[in-house]
Simulated assay, not measured.
Amino acid sequence: MLLTVSGPPGAGKSTTVATLAEAFGLEHISGGDIFRQLAAERDMTAVEFNKLAEKDDQIDRDLDRRLRTIALERDDVLLESRLAGWLAGDAADIRLWLDAPLDVRAERIAEREDKSLDVAREETRAREESEALRYEEYYNIDITDLGIYDITLNTARWSEEDVPSVLKAAVEAYDPEDDEGKFPVEGVNYDF
């Protein structure tokens, strides 16, 4: 099975995917972890690295190529990244989008990264705008188009424990033989 989990920063992806990966015996591959490792290797914050990525498109392209290759060549993976659902395309069994209002996400990020709420909110907003521009320019992806996702969930509405339970129930109900409801991913330029 190939599950993808996508969503903006602070939506609760990392918290949720650990539970889902364990529940279904899937290897968890995190694009965010890879991105932060690359930033740390250059002694940069994620925000600084995002700014560099605005000028050097090879940063995104290398990361996205690696994630797409994993999606197309490996089995039993939970792929987590902002573009995971898009990059996996029709290879994904189920594509999930997790979200929450900006203020909720900024509060989570502020707590996690030990920074002020105002700084977290502004950095998150700037990061999302930067990424949205790059995704559109590089791949013709409108990150606000959620039509490719099988499930979109506002994680602010449920507890940290309940979100994985809701998604686990949906995945367990999935029948891989019935792909009539699957939305193809069209119009994406996979020119890495």
Rank of each mutant, 00 (worst) to 15 (best):
Ala173Arg: 15
Val163Glu: 13
Asp150Lys: 07
Thr152Tyr: 07
Ala120Ile: 15
Ser130Asn: 10
Leu146Gln: 05
Tyr139Glu: 03
Asn189Arg: 14
Tyr135Arg: 04
Ala169Pro: 03
Ala169His: 10
Trp158Asp: 10
Arg134His: 00
Glu128Gly: 04
Asp178Ala: 02
Val185Glu: 03
Phe192Met: 06
Ser130Thr: 11
Thr155Lys: 04
Val188Gly: 00
Asp150Met: 13
Thr144Glu: 13
Val119Asp: 07
Ile151Glu: 04
Val163Tyr: 00
Asp179Val: 01
Glu137His: 03
Asp145Gln: 09
Glu137Thr: 04
Glu160Arg: 11
Leu146Thr: 14
Tyr138Phe: 04
Leu117Asn: 14
Glu123Phe: 11
Arg127Asp: 15
Asp145Cys: 10
Tyr149Cys: 00
Glu113Asp: 12
Val171Arg: 13
Asp162Cys: 04
Asp145Leu: 03
Gly181Thr: 03
Tyr139Thr: 08
Glu137Asp: 01
Ala126Asn: 09
Glu160Thr: 13
Val188Pro: 00
Thr144Pro: 12
Glu136Tyr: 15
Glu161Gly: 07
Ser116Arg: 09
Asp191Trp: 06
Glu161Gln: 09
Asp150Leu: 11
Gly181Gln: 14
Gly147Trp: 10
Tyr149Glu: 13
Ala170Asp: 10
Pro164Tyr: 02
Tyr139Asp: 11
Tyr138Glu: 04
Glu180His: 12
Lys168Pro: 13
Leu117Asp: 13
Tyr139Pro: 05
Asp145Met: 01
Ala170Ile: 14
Thr155Ser: 14
Tyr135Ile: 05
Asp114Glu: 14
Ile141Ser: 02
Gly181Met: 12
Thr144Lys: 09
Gly147Arg: 06
Asp118Trp: 15
Tyr190Trp: 01
Ala126Ile: 13
Glu186Arg: 06
Ala126Arg: 02
Pro176Tyr: 12
